[in-house]
Computed example of a mutant assay.
Amino acid sequence: MSDARINPNGSLRGKVALVTGASRGIGEAICARLAMEGAHVVASARTAEAGESRLPGTLHDTVDRLKAAGGQAVFVKADLAQASERERLVEEAEAAFGPIDILVNNAAITYFMPVVDFTEKRFKLMMEVQVYAPFHLSQLVLPGMIARKSGSIVNISSPAGIHPKPPYQGGRGGTVYGLCKAALERFTTGLASEVQADGVAVNVVSPGLVDTPGVAVHGLINEATKSRVQPIEYIAEAVYQLAKADPQAMTGRVAYAEPLLKELGLEPAALI
């Protein structure tokens, strides 16, 4: 990996990137990678201060990390389950740095339980945050992107979106999670077909198993799965590569992080 540093004259110089779910884990890593290429980053999540979540990591931590390395960053605390909060997020992001050039829909709320036990409230909350919020945020930023004939939307999915195949082994209660990710992927390819001619790229990055606080709380890394753990740098690099991609050459992709980098002949950059 190359040395980690902020390049203010990088390939994303002057671009404004809005990243959701950015208080920790994959979202924080994406913020770092985009900032390294000169993007002005707006980080958003529900956790701004220590003590607001049972998980480690805050928006303050993310923004402090970027600024300490010489990056340009602000945060906007927002609950993406609320339409008014999504609208306020885009308004405040644009007030801080200007129109959004890159939208990364990473935020998620997830419950793992069998369908027979799934409550309506939890189902609707997962659909709102993981499917409708990316849809609505895209609606909010697309008019500006289309007017400028330039923009990129990257949605973060999961291999859970792939259909299970027999012989069935039983599951961990991930049916609703997989449903959300499959819907997000279909939204991505559909939107890509709508806006390619307008100069906007819309893609998916599907991470492998990554050691993040969210993964830890669900107990997804164990003796049986630890060999599949993927460095977080792979996901951040894949998002960056798609965020700067020419929509005429690369849009509508459902890209798995490591295979995408192999296809492009790249190694992930170390993160600030």
Rank of each mutant, 00 (worst) to 15 (best):
T189I: 15
T225K: 01
G214P: 08
G208D: 14
A182T: 10
V229I: 04
R186K: 14
F187N: 03
V204D: 08
A216W: 00
E185D: 15
G178I: 02
L220Q: 10
N203F: 05
A197G: 10
V215D: 00
I221C: 07
A183K: 03
A183P: 02
H218G: 08
S227P: 02
V217S: 12
K181V: 07
S227G: 06
N222Y: 00
A182R: 12
A183C: 12
P213F: 00
S227H: 12
E194N: 07
D198Q: 14
A183G: 04
H218L: 13
Q230H: 00
V202P: 06
A182G: 13
A192T: 11
E194F: 10
P207N: 05
H218A: 14
V195W: 01
V195S: 11
E223R: 13
N222T: 05
N203G: 05
S206V: 09
S206A: 15
A201R: 10
R228M: 14
A183L: 10
I221L: 06
C180D: 11
G199A: 04
T189R: 14
P207T: 07
V217K: 09
V229T: 03
H218P: 06
G199T: 09
D198C: 12
D198N: 13
G214T: 08
G208Y: 14
V229N: 01
V202A: 11
G219V: 02
L191S: 10
F187I: 13
A197K: 14
A197S: 13
R186C: 11
G214Q: 08
A192C: 11
E223H: 08
P207M: 05
P231I: 02
E223M: 07
V200E: 09
L184G: 03
Y177H: 14
G178A: 07
